[in-house]
Structure formats: structure tokens, C-alpha cells
Design a protein around this nucleic acid. Structure first.
Lengths: 233, 233
DNA sequence: AAATGCATTGTTGTGTACAACAACACGCGC
DNA sequence: GCGCGTGTTGTTGTACACAACAATGCATTT
């Protein structure tokens, strides 16, 4: 393949200011999803050469993507060894969860965004998806649903730094559920998450965004406790 | 210069696992300081080629450093134009300050670290420096002192994600004071900061770390209000 | 004189070859 | 049989040459 003559890259005309940036974000989200969905489990060593070949680029632009993922704490590159998917040890997990709880509450307090029809539709769709998921639990679908619920919640606040910080911490810890999937009660977790979405939807319909933050915080708190209990036995 | 034969690079034997990493961190902190101390003011276009030449490396390792700074929001690279130091517009500044206030309070609540003699000495030295600064105000010394006070405060909490998040937001906004230096009353600001350090030291000596967070939050809140007043007239 | 097209220049983005490094396996000595 | 040194292999790190791109200045045209 010749340089830059990517087949599907510049297809959409919305290259706001650079086709390279678009490709970067595509690679970034692709790899982040693979990490969060445990296609690349913690400790997995992925090869720059192999990834570059797969995506039809050279190592150079790929390394920029890996660099960002490393900056987010999802990867760790060490010379002579490889690029390793990070693992989250239990005490670091606890610290992140403590902070995530506080930030979840802030989502409803800092720059709340008035719920519009779009947001309501979004959460109603999530509620329906949650009910289906609770009826027929599936590990991967659960993980994806968890991500989608989080991303929907991020639209509640206008505070961009808060959203970015919450995102970073979320993607750092969301994998733990898929990792513990043999031990956890997937059906119960799906049911709990589905009910959380229902509660969130109720609060949004009323327009009480502070309540949204409190509900979310409570569920993060409880889910961490359940997680610890799962792991302990 | 041949590859890797840097004169001062591998001088210290504490290369925990890679001399490259050490060099990376040195470049990173150097450039971050230059940005935060306004050696590179917002809007400034810095050349990869020139920087690589200055540091005696090739563009490749330098680009990794620039990539991290871009991930932290301090730089913005655009093809064909250059690598530009970001500017903070007033509304984004407000959002960051709101979040910083909340995080400051959390510093005293999440994983507080018992003050030891080292920390007390650190803050007592800062108190002395603050008094000297208040007597003979200097813009650059004020900015550096502001950074050092912040870094000392980061040692109060054991929560690493909270520290990293606070750092990111701090370095994103600390430049605003040097930017406004013709308009602000530098002597007054130095006096206020020195007194804040005194208050913080008092709280630390008592061992009330929650108070530390509250004091810090209050000062962040007030300093933002003063900043807005400075800018408005 | 003003506007427009175009060449020039300088920048970041990309591809590629090689160096530095660490892990592994093999063979040698004990 | 066991320990150790060493070559081999695969990885990330680095340097460099070139492509893609945007801005600028200049000549040309209207």
C-alpha cells in the first residue's frame, strides 16, 4: 500500500482539519475498545508491527496512538519487552472507585445540562436495552451496555474537564467486571444495572440532575462492595 | 552526535528500567515548565526540528514528549501549521476552576496521609519562601512558588488518581496568572498566597487534613473571583 | 489598484532501516 | 543432572528521508 492512499480513510468529507486526525481517533477508539472488552486482557503483549500491518499503516502513526493509550494508563511500553496491557491491582482500584464516586456526584452539580428530547430518547433506549439484557445476560453485551450507559451519563454535565476525567477513570476500571465474569453473578449484575438505568431515567424525566449524580454515586459505591465480595469468595 | 551517546544522559545509575524513560521525563518536565512559566506563551508555535536540535535528539523521541503534552491539553499539533501552545478561554477556565475547587476539598478527604516531619519541614520552608516573596515580589518567582506550593499539597493525599487529575488541571490553568501579570497586583497576590501557606501549615501542624482541603478550596474560589475582576477592569 | 493563481517555504505526518535492549533457548562446563 | 554463560530472536527506541499539507509572498491578470 502506498503512503496515505488509504482506501476508506478520507471517505467522509467532514475532515474538519486533517484526515490524519480522523484516522488517529478511529485507531484510538478501536484499540481502547479491544482493551476494555478484554480482547486484549491485562498482561497481554501486543506487537506494534502486527497492529501496524493489521491497520495498514506504518509503526509511526500507530505509535502515536499507543502513546496516548499509555498516557491514559491503559498501556505500558518497555523497551526490549513489548507493549503490555496494564492491570489494575486492588488497592489502586479502590482509590479510583473512591474518586469516581465523588466525580459521579459532581456530574449532577457542575454545569448540569437541561434534559432535552434527545437525552430522554437516549435513556429510554438504554432502559429497553437493559431490560433485554437482564432477560438474557451475556458478558460482552453487559460490558458494552455498561460503557454505553456511562457515555450517556456524560451528557448530563456541561463541564468538559469533569467529563474527560470521569472517562479516563471509567475506562481504567470498567474492565474489572469482565475480568471477574466467572465469579460474578452476571444475571444479577445485569438486573441491577438495568434498574439503575430506570432510576436514572426517572430522575432525568423529572429534571433533577442532582439526583442523577446521587443515584449514580450510590450504585458505584454498592457495585464496588459487591465486586470485593465476589473476589473474596 | 551519535545515537544514544548523550553526554549527560546516563550519568545517574538509577535507570530503574530504561535510560530512555529517564530522558523522556526530563524532556517532558522541561517543556512543561517552559509552557507554565510562559517561556512559550499561548499561541506560540514551537518547531520540532529546533527542539530536537536543542536537546541533541532526533524528532522521533521528541515527538513522543510532544504527544504526551498534547494529551494533557498543553499543546495542539496540526499538520502543515505547527505545534501550538494552547490557550485557555475564559469559559473553559471557569469549568476547570469549578472542578479544581471540588478536587481540592477531596485532597483532604480521600486517603489523607499522616503528616510527618518531612512534610512539616517542607511546608515550613514554603512559609519562609512565601514571606520573602511577599516582601520582594517577582513574577517568575511567584509562578514558581505557586507550582511548588501545589506540589507540596499533592503529598497530603495518598489517592494517586486524585493527585494526577489535580496536577493535570493545575498545570492547565496556572499559566493564567503570569499571563495577567501586568493587570494583577503582584504584591497583593504574593501576600495572599503566603498567608494561605501559613494557614495550610497551621492545619497540617494540628493534623486536620480536612481543614487543609477546605482552606485550599476557599483560596481557589477567591483567587478565581479576583482573577475575573482583574480581567474585567 | 485589487484580486487571483501559483510557486515557494516551512511545518507536521509517514515510512523505513537500524540501534538498544531484554527474554529465551541452547550448549558448555562442572 | 545442574548451573551458568552466550548466542539468538523478537521487541521497543531512534534516526533519517520523504510525503502531505498549509501559509506566505510574488507575479500575473483584470
Amino acid at each position: 500500500m502506498t503512503q496515505g492512499a488509504s482506501g476508506d480513510g478520507p471517505g467522509r468529507g467532514e475532515t474538519y482539519s486533517g484526515a490524519a486526525r480522523e484516522r488517529f481517533e478511529r485507531l484510538y477508539e478501536t484499540l481502547r475498545n479491544r482493551i476494555c472488552l478484554l480482547d486484549y486482557p491485562p498482561g497481554h503483549r501486543l506487537s506494534e508491527e502486527a497492529l501496524a500491518t493489521e491497520f495498514g499503516v506504518s509503526r509511526t502513526p500507530l505509535r502515536r496512538v499507543l502513546g496516548w493509550l499509555e498516557a491514559q494508563g491503559l498501556l505500558r511500553s518497555v523497551q526490549g519487552v513489548g507493549t503490555i496491557v496494564t492491570d489494575v491491582e486492588i488497592d489502586a482500584l479502590s482509590q479510583i472507585y473512591q474518586l469516581r464516586m465523588e466525580l459521579a456526584e459532581l456530574i449532577g452539580r457542575l454545569g448540569p445540562r437541561e434534559p432535552d428530547e434527545t437525552m430522554l430518547t437516549l435513556f429510554r433506549n438504554l432502559r429497553d436495552r437493559g431490560q433485554q439484557l437482564a432477560e438474557s445476560p451475556d458478558a460482552r453485551a453487559f460490558a458494552q451496555f455498561n460503557i454505553d450507559v456511562f457515555q450517556a451519563l456524560m451528557q448530563v454535565s456541561n463541564n468538559k474537564p469533569l467529563r474527560e476525567t470521569s472517562e479516563r477513570l471509567f475506562y481504567l476500571t470498567s474492565r474489572i467486571w469482565l475480568q471477574s465474569v466467572p465469579q460474578i453473578d452476571l444475571g444479577q449484575e445485569a438486573t441491577i444495572l438495568a434498574r439503575e438505568v430506570e432510576e436514572l431515567l426517572t430522575a432525568i424525566e423529572i429534571g433533577d440532575l442532582a439526583a442523577v449524580g446521587l443515584i449514580r454515586r450510590a450504585h458505584i459505591s454498592m457495585s464496588f462492595i459487591r465486586l470485593i465480595r465476589y473476589r473474596d469468595g
